[in-house]
Amino acid sequence: MCGRYSLSKSKIELEERFQAEILVDFKPRYNIAPTQLVPVITSESPKGFSFFYWGITPDFAKNKPVSQKFINAKAETVHEKISFKSSFEKRRCLVPADGFYEWKKLGKKTKVPYRFTMANNEAFAFAGIWEEYENEKGEINHTFLILTTEPNRLVSEVHDRMPVILKKEDEKKWLDKYSSESNLLQMLTTYSADDMLSYTVSPLVNQVSNDSPGIIRKTSPMDQFGNYTLFG
């Protein structure tokens, strides 16, 4: 699964990279977590950034028994599952990012956080789908999920799944309402490890409240308790 990511680029950098406008104040994010309000680019509004909640919680899904960990969907079955099929067909989105985190298990209690980025440190986009829900107050909330797939050789050393990273040339096609199902599924491939980097980061990333530049800096491998390990 993908349970944490970063978007540390500036507003100007994001607007230039995605050719879309951000109409609100935006500050770089270093430790984005589920249920938070973050920028996406939707199929309905491809020229501007929208701000949606990551994941679907019971508060957003009135009368629906949805898990609080409902933040990802498998790319292999997204077009078949009743819960995702409509969103896959009609409501797709780009989820801008410049890195994501996974934790490598080294024992029953030892986990070391890793950050994965593009080799050139550029921003990229996860493949996402979005939905609209009415909460108990009658307010409309917009939420999104990130699609995941089999890991490349770099990510597989840490985790058995990775987010779908779209090729830059596929981003507009992903948002295009006229793209066929077969073409869409072809985009949901495992991103090449040759174009990515990974490194260990501070266990400070474990706490959602920590959202500062220090989170994305390379550090010596430490477990979740802050103890140095011998593994990289």
Rank of each mutant, 00 (worst) to 15 (best):
Q19A: 14
D211P: 07
I56E: 07
T229G: 04
L145A: 10
E139I: 08
G232Y: 10
K109H: 14
E89H: 09
F116P: 14
S87Y: 03
L14K: 03
M222L: 04
Q68I: 14
L184E: 06
S87K: 00
T143R: 05
E139A: 12
A20D: 10
E16L: 09
K111H: 08
H159T: 06
G107P: 05
I165E: 06
E181W: 01
E131T: 02
D98H: 07
G107W: 04
Q207E: 11
L184F: 02
M196W: 12
E15L: 11
W103Y: 14
P151S: 11
W103C: 08
A97V: 14
P151K: 10
S182T: 15
N141E: 15
A193I: 08
P213S: 01
K172E: 11
P203N: 12
N120L: 00
A193M: 08
E80A: 12
K90L: 01
H142L: 06
D194W: 10
N120Y: 02
K167I: 02
L175N: 09
A125P: 01
L23M: 11
Y53M: 01
E131H: 05
F116Y: 13
M1L: 13
G3N: 13
K109M: 13
E132I: 09
C93V: 00
F116T: 12
K104V: 03
F84K: 05
K105I: 05
D160H: 15
P58I: 07
L204G: 04
S179E: 02
I129Q: 06
S43E: 10
T149H: 07
L37W: 00
E21W: 14
C93Y: 01
M196N: 09
P221S: 02
Q36C: 01
S50H: 01
M118K: 15
E136A: 13
S179D: 02
K81R: 11
V38A: 00
E157R: 14
T149S: 09
F100T: 04
Q224C: 12
Q224A: 09
E102P: 07
F116W: 14
L185Q: 13
N227W: 03
K111G: 04
F26C: 04
A127N: 03
G214F: 02
K108H: 04
V208R: 10
A119S: 14
Y5T: 08
R153C: 02
K90V: 00
V38S: 00
K85A: 15
F18H: 09
R29E: 15
M196K: 10
E15G: 06
P203D: 06
W54Q: 05
S180P: 00
Q19T: 11
L185M: 13
T229D: 01
N210A: 11
T110P: 00
